[in-house]
């Protein structure tokens, strides 16, 4: 499969052995990216008022959780049971399943940095990309983004709220990347060679247990460069050949084993 190569490849190494699953990343992501709290009523739509309510967060298959924490279990009985948490942002695949399928080029991977973009005003909402992504990193905007009264008085300036009917996903807080590059230019530095920490997505920044390390996978001065090569590092569903830019690591073998399918033995 032909893969576009980039000089800069932003990526994450998520240490599952450090993630406590607290959910601060998921909250920070929603605040940064103006994802509205899920409210049942739509005060602007009288037809809605006459019919079924909108979904609230009880419906986990209708949320907009660009960053989503999965719970892993080793499947054993008490007291051998173990648990782990796996935060799942968009994998920003090197060979994305979603990009080639989009009929209207609303998603692309062509910018230096290797982040898979999503152009909301272009998206027609066909959801083919969601069908394509095995990580469920793509979310459909089922309902209009409406905040409880007054809560939208000041939204994050990072990204406009998306109308209903389009697909959304994590873009490694792309505005922060743009800002970091601008800052570098202002400081007379090379925007194509950002220092570690100059650009960090909201989830990685807020994580209280430092489980998410973020940086340029191609830059030897960035921690992720080495971490990604650790014998404990793995990527999700590597066998499918999507080449994610998000790596995970765990010293626990059972955790690593849940990163891919091994039911048919290990031949590839």
């Amino acid at each position: 499969m032909h893969m576009k190569e980039f000089k800069i490849k932003w990526g994450m190494v998520i240490d599952i052995d450090k993630c406590t699953g607290c959910g601060a990343c998921m909250v920070a992501c929603q605040v940064e990216n103006n994802i509205a709290p899920m409210t049942k009523k739509d005060p602007y739509n009288y037809v809605q008022a006459l019919t079924k309510d909108r979904d609230d967060a009880d419906n986990k298959l209708r949320t907009l959780t660009w960053m989503n924490v999965y719970e892993l279990s080793n499947g054993k009985s008490f007291p051998e049971h173990e648990v782990a948490y796996l935060p799942r942002p968009c994998m920003q695949c090197g060979n994305p399943a979603c990009v080639p399928v989009c009929p209207v080029v609303a998603t692309d991977k062509n910018e230096e940095g290797g982040i898979v973009s999503q152009i909301y005003p272009r998206c027609i909402g066909c959801r083919y990309c969601m069908a394509a992504c095995p990580y469920h990193a793509r979310y459909f905007n089922w309902w209009d983004p409406l905040w409880p009264e007054g809560m939208d008085k000041q939204l994050s300036p990072a990204v406009s709220p998306r109308p209903r009917g389009v697909v959304e996903k994590c873009n490694f807080c792309h505005t922060r990347y743009a800002k970091a590059k601008d800052q570098a230019r202002e400081n007379g530095e090379d925007p194509m060679n950002l220092a570690e920490g100059a650009y960090v997505p909201a989830c990685a920044e807020i994580c209280p247990s430092g489980a998410i390390t973020f940086g340029d996978l191609n830059n030897p001065e960035h921690k992720v460069h080495e971490l990604a090569k650790s014998p404990h590092a793995f990527r999700l569903l590597e066998k499918l050949g999507l080449h994610p830019q998000v790596y995970y690591m765990s010293k626990r073998e059972w955790v690593r084993k849940q990163g891919d399918n091994y039911n048919a033995g290990d031949k590839h």
Binding site: G23, A24, V27, V31, M151, Q154, E205, I206, C207, S209
Partner: peptide, 29 residues
């Protein structure tokens, strides 16, 4: 519009708990 950790604080070192990550939204509730 939001909160972030305070790198200089020994209590935070850049991190925040999930409640305080949502503090501004609580303020505007």
């Amino acid at each position: 519009f939001g909160t972030e950790g305070n790198e200089d604080s020994p209590l935070s070192k850049g991190g925040i708990c999930p409640i305080c990550a949502n503090a501004v939204q609580v303020m505007r509730n």
